[in-house]
Simulated scan of single mutants.
Amino acid sequence: MAKTIFITGASRGFGKLWAEAFLKRGDNVIATARDINTLNDLKAVYGDKLLALQLDVNNRADVFAAIEKASQKFDTIDVLINNAGYGLFGAIEETSEAEARAQIETNVFGLLWVTQAILPLMRKQGHGHIVQVSSVLGVATLPTLGIYNASKFAVEGLSETLASEVKDFGIKVTLVEPNGFATDWAGASAAGTTPIDAYEPVRKAFQAGTTDDAFGIPEATIDAVLKLIDAENPPLRLFLGKVALPWVKQVYADRLATWEAWNDVAVAAHGK
């Protein structure tokens, strides 16, 4: 049965790739982008199956208006995919106030506004699936991506809480956590701070540890995303790629070891 899917950040990368895959199999798609001309090719092929909307997710009023426009055209929205966002590269000390605020505004507040806007509709219809595009960097961190890491950690906490709040309304929540993929996320879509020379060794070490095999093929994610949105009981979390799980297992093993080593101190701090 065809679904109606609202996806943000559909101008390029995962967003456009997934939007096209949904359209190809007969779903209705509401695709948003800051520049809807980037969706002209899809509109030419799929016509009324695609509603292309200009949207900056940072504008809360425009977000609510976009959801209203989408619901008027398609009546229901079965799936929301919060994909809009970008990466800010730079050490924490290098990051300006404006750069930090812009990163959090888009990656956290933009996602929050779209989520809030669609919840009344999904509650009324008694079903829905909210897919938050997070990152493995919302579970573990890499240097020179500190504010991006922080934004995705925020998305993780927000979405895990949301899942517990909306489950009785028939609404499912999934955090999709990709490892690196060969999109332009680290290229044209990225922003960067003004470098401080002292952090150059950190940057070089990070770059030296990155291999081509660490980056997945974007098109290979399509089947996984289709299975996810078709699942009767979708998971709260889903990694995309082969790198994420082995890395996170090691990160959590290290965390557990540290907590265990300091547990006597922690218990004593309870006071009784």
Rank of each mutant, 00 (worst) to 15 (best):
residue 249 K to R: 13
residue 56 D to F: 01
residue 252 Y to Q: 14
residue 65 A to I: 03
residue 86 Y to P: 00
residue 68 E to S: 12
residue 166 V to H: 05
residue 197 D to S: 10
residue 223 D to Q: 13
residue 224 A to Q: 09
residue 43 K to Y: 06
residue 262 W to N: 14
residue 25 R to G: 07
residue 81 I to G: 00
residue 228 L to R: 00
residue 180 G to C: 02
residue 84 A to D: 11
residue 60 R to A: 14
residue 232 E to V: 05
residue 216 G to K: 09
residue 116 Q to N: 09
residue 255 R to K: 12
residue 41 D to K: 05
residue 215 F to Q: 05
residue 108 V to R: 07
residue 213 D to Y: 14
residue 267 V to I: 14
residue 227 K to G: 13
residue 257 A to Y: 07
residue 201 P to F: 00
residue 255 R to E: 13
residue 221 T to F: 09
residue 136 V to A: 12
residue 160 E to N: 07
residue 195 P to R: 13
residue 55 L to F: 03
residue 235 P to N: 08
residue 218 P to A: 05
residue 195 P to I: 09
residue 205 A to R: 15
residue 7 I to T: 04
residue 216 G to R: 10
residue 87 G to T: 06
residue 211 T to S: 15
residue 28 N to F: 11
residue 100 A to P: 02
residue 111 L to H: 02
residue 80 L to V: 04
residue 17 L to A: 01
residue 67 I to T: 13
residue 104 I to H: 01
residue 180 G to K: 12
residue 208 A to R: 12
residue 93 E to V: 04
residue 209 G to L: 12
residue 245 L to M: 13
residue 190 A to Q: 10
residue 231 A to R: 02
residue 7 I to E: 00
residue 104 I to G: 00
residue 188 A to V: 10
residue 266 A to F: 07
residue 230 D to V: 10
residue 89 F to L: 09
residue 247 W to R: 13
residue 146 G to I: 05
residue 55 L to R: 03
residue 239 F to E: 11
residue 11 S to C: 10
residue 212 D to T: 15
residue 223 D to M: 09
residue 66 A to M: 04
residue 138 G to V: 08
residue 104 I to Q: 02
residue 129 H to S: 08
residue 68 E to W: 00
residue 81 I to A: 04
residue 8 T to F: 00
residue 73 K to T: 08
residue 147 I to G: 04
residue 166 V to P: 00
residue 76 T to I: 11
residue 202 V to R: 02
residue 242 K to W: 10
residue 136 V to T: 11
residue 74 F to D: 00
residue 114 V to A: 15
residue 91 A to S: 11
residue 25 R to F: 03
residue 85 G to R: 01
residue 255 R to M: 11
residue 204 K to R: 15
residue 28 N to G: 02
residue 40 N to W: 04
residue 214 A to R: 14
residue 56 D to T: 05
residue 205 A to S: 15
residue 150 A to N: 01
residue 193 T to F: 03
residue 170 G to F: 12
residue 164 S to K: 15
residue 271 G to M: 12
residue 162 L to V: 06
residue 263 N to H: 11
residue 85 G to E: 02
residue 183 T to F: 07
residue 25 R to S: 08
residue 257 A to F: 03
residue 92 I to D: 05
residue 129 H to C: 08
residue 69 K to G: 04
residue 260 E to N: 12
residue 85 G to I: 01
residue 110 G to L: 10
residue 75 D to Q: 14
residue 150 A to S: 11
residue 84 A to K: 00
residue 123 R to C: 02
residue 144 T to Y: 09
